[in-house]
Amino acid sequence: MAIAVKLDDLLHDRRMTLTELAERVEMTLANLSILKTGKARAIRFSTLEAICGALSCQPGDLLRFESEQAEREPIAR
């Protein structure tokens, strides 16, 4: 998928576990796991707001667009 979720990096930087985040944002661990592993098809604004609030970050820190073409041809030059 072209949108990469950087939840793992954010959690690592903040020394926080997924379980702790789940408790803070009042989401199930299963749903957060779906998001973390990039299996989610969509994210609600309310979820984004809660995660950004809990991790003190911007939506752009959590999500990043990665061109699929660039993924296929990593180092062409």
């Binding site: 989401m27 749903n31 779906i34 998001l35 299996k39 989610a40 098809r41 969509a42």
Partner: peptide
């Protein structure tokens, strides 16, 4: 429904 199930 599928889309909704993949929404977090």
């Amino acid at each position: 429904r599928d889309d909704l199930e993949g929404t977090v």
